[in-house]
């Protein structure tokens, strides 16, 4: 705590019943300041969450209800799930969701396994060419995806993997940034914890599996979450590599729905709610890792 704080005179008690709201340094915040802070917070809340709620509200409004009215009606008069049934009749939205789930799950598995293994090799194992291997990942991180999608597409065609879900997953299967994140996590572990196992005759695989990997679970969770979110939300690459509507992921399917039934806002709204709900649920449960990922990613990025 600062010196200034100590010489500060105690505030006179202004009635014991008033709730004590203090900042992180244990100091009272004035009621006036609190008021404008909450007003601003609520205003920003309306701006950030409002659009999602309006979309939800639109998706719950029945065919007879006016969605264009002025002044607008924020709450559906007779909430109905009719639009969700209709969107499934119009496009195979649940198949799209399943495709997205497959792609996202595969992306999590390949990224966790691939980046943990490679990260460990870069951080802990000694061999000729380690510097070159590290350089490969650093260079790959600097290449903007948007600059190579066309070549990735022709590569996929050469492999016969265009228009497949495998083709959607492969280019990002082991993200270079994830490898470098894992490398840093392993490097920050003290050597001593592996030394004992080494003396006991454990080989590289045993040390990795039993000792190093359990110690970097937090970073692994960050990699997993961002791999899931990245795959679930991705648009440009699946748009390029997928052409057969039965293979579409949710984002591509939504774009298709929007392009084909653009004038049916209730339908598009229901589709977007289906696409965004799982991620908002995931975020609500695992916020800590989302925020941690921003910090680690920004430092690296």
């Amino acid at each position: 705590m600062s010196v200034l704080e100590k010489v500060r005179p105690e505030r006179p008690a202004t009635g014991a019943r008033e709730p004590r709201v203090t900042d992180e340094h244990g100091r009272r915040i004035r009621a006036g300041e609190l008021l404008w802070r909450y007003l601003l917070l609520l205003a920003v809340l309306a701006l950030t969450i409002g659009p999602f709620l309006w979309q939800l509200s639109t998706s719950l409004k029945g065919p007879t209800e006016d969605i264009y009215g002025s002044p607008p009606r924020f709450l559906p008069g007779h909430p109905t799930l009719h639009n969700y049934a209709r969107v499934a009749d119009t496009v195979p939205v649940w198949d799209y969701a399943l495709n997205s789930l497959k792609v996202a799950t595969a992306n999590v598995v390949t990224n966790c396994v691939g980046s943990a293994l490679a990260g460990y090799a870069l951080a802990r194992l000694r061999y000729r060419g380690r510097g070159a291997a590290t350089l490969v990942f650093v260079l790959a991180m600097l290449v903007p995806v948007e600059g190579i999608v066309i070549a990735q597409f022709t590569t996929m065609r050469e492999l016969g993997l265009n228009n497949t879900l495998v083709g959607v997953v492969l280019p990002g299967a082991v993200g270079a940034m994830n490898v470098l994140l894992m490398r840093n996590a392993f490097r920050n572990l003290p050597f001593e914890i592996e030394e004992a196992a080494y003396v006991d005759g454990a080989d590289a695989w045993q040390r990795f599996r039993r000792i190093a990997l359990p110690s970097v679970k937090g970073t692994l969770a960050v990699v997993a979450i961002f791999a899931f979110m990245g795959a679930w939300d991705d648009f440009l690459w699946p748009l390029i590599v997928l052409s057969d509507p039965s293979k579409f992921t949710l984002t591509i399917g939504l774009n298709y729905l929007h392009g084909t039934f653009a004038n049916d806002e209730r339908l598009v709204a229901a589709g977007t709610v289906i696409a965004v709900a799982p991620l908002i649920a995931l975020f609500a449960c695992l916020q800590r890792y989302f925020f941690r990922g921003v910090g680690e990613g920004a430092v690296k990025g």
Binding site: G114, L125, A140, L170
Partner: peptide, 20 residues
């Protein structure tokens, strides 16, 4: 074995980032 550890990552990065 170090190369086996790094292989999946190097393969994907080489084939789908650096080669493109």
């Amino acid at each position: 074995s170090p190369w086996l550890f790094a292989a999946p990552g190097l393969l994907v990065t080489g084939a789908f980032v650096l080669y493109p």
